[in-house]
């Protein structure tokens, strides 16, 4: 697999400033700041419990940070917006989960049209047309009438990506999107993500797939114990990690992938 070319603009799409998040006495994020430019792909790596997933959930306020700011496309996220406005802003940020979290009682098509109709106010016809486009894009045009339980894990995750894209998000968050998949199904999901990157989508990807990071990510951020211990251009960080924690972590990952 070779490098996936994509265009990165100067404009900042996501800014996190001094994010802090604790659960009881456990510090999940300790003063995390990062910024992502439009069209940029950021790989987020780190051990389990290092704060990667918490960061993603703080960015779209699924789990509001205790303090700090999140700015998406120049506009502040936060409870101060009010519940309705926050929901609408949240819909601009697509999220893909490790466990897919498709709605099991809906068909594939229903999974894709529910939120566009309810949140974006699309008619059923418009939403269905958009959904069919996206299903074709992720290679599942023939599965729209199926239920999630009838699909493989890789197919379910592609539907989940399409479901997020149906909201026409400005940025996509991926929380270990291939970690729950059988090894032979990983590649079909990564390919969909490669295409997305090539189309200029801004992406924050929590992942252990180092080959994917190498091919697609512009930058890598390494988390340890709720802090960013290292960040930089992918090639540099992979070739020559500076921090002892990222050295140890990347060595372990690169050996297995």
């Amino acid at each position: 697999m070779t490098h996936v070319p994509h265009h990165v603009e100067e404009r900042l799409m996501v800014q996190a400033i001094n994010l802090k998040k604790t659960y009881g006495t456990y510090v999940a994020l300790e003063d995390v700041s990062l910024s992502v430019r439009k069209g940029e792909v950021l790989a987020i790596v780190g051990g389990s419990g290092s704060g990667k997933s918490t960061l993603l959930r703080c960015l779209n306020f699924l789990d509001p940070p205790d303090s700090g700011e999140v700015i998406v496309d120049g506009r502040q996220m936060g409870a101060a917006l009010g519940e309705r406005a926050l929901r609408r802003r949240r819909a601009d940020i697509g999220m893909v989960f490790q466990q897919f979290n498709l709605f099991p009682h809906f068909t594939v098509l229903q999974n894709l049209i529910e939120a566009p109709m309810a949140v974006r106010g699309l008619s059923r016809k418009e939403a269905t047309a958009r959904a069919r486009d996206l299903l074709a894009q992720v290679g599942l045009a023939d599965k729209e009438a199926r239920f999630p339980s009838e699909l493989s894990g890789g197919q379910q995750q592609r539907v989940a990506i399409a479901r997020a894209l149906a909201m026409e998000p400005q940025v996509m968050l991926f929380d270990e999107p291939t970690s729950a998949l059988d090894p032979e199904l990983v590649e079909e999901v990564l390919n969909v993500m490669r295409n997305l990157a090539a189309q200029g989508m801004t992406m924050l990807v929590v992942t252990h797939e180092m080959q994917f990071a190498r091919d697609v990510a512009d930058r890598i951020v390494v988390f340890d114990q709720g802090r960013i211990v290292e960040q930089g251009p992918t090639a540099e960080v992979l070739r020559n990690p500076q921090h002892p924690r990222s050295q140890a972590f990347l060595k372990r990952l690169l050996r297995t992938s």
């Binding site: 929901r87 609408r88 940020i93 498709l102 709605f103 099991p104 939120a115 309810a118 949140v119 909201m167």
Partner: peptide, 24 residues
């Protein structure tokens, strides 16, 4: 995870309850 996915899509609490949670 069903709540999380539904909230991430911007669905309102009432909608999440009626359409996503109650049927399941």
């Amino acid at each position: 995870g069903q709540y999380q996915a539904a909230r991430a899509l911007g669905l309102s609490p009432a909608r999440i309850f009626c359409r996503i949670i109650i049927p399941q």
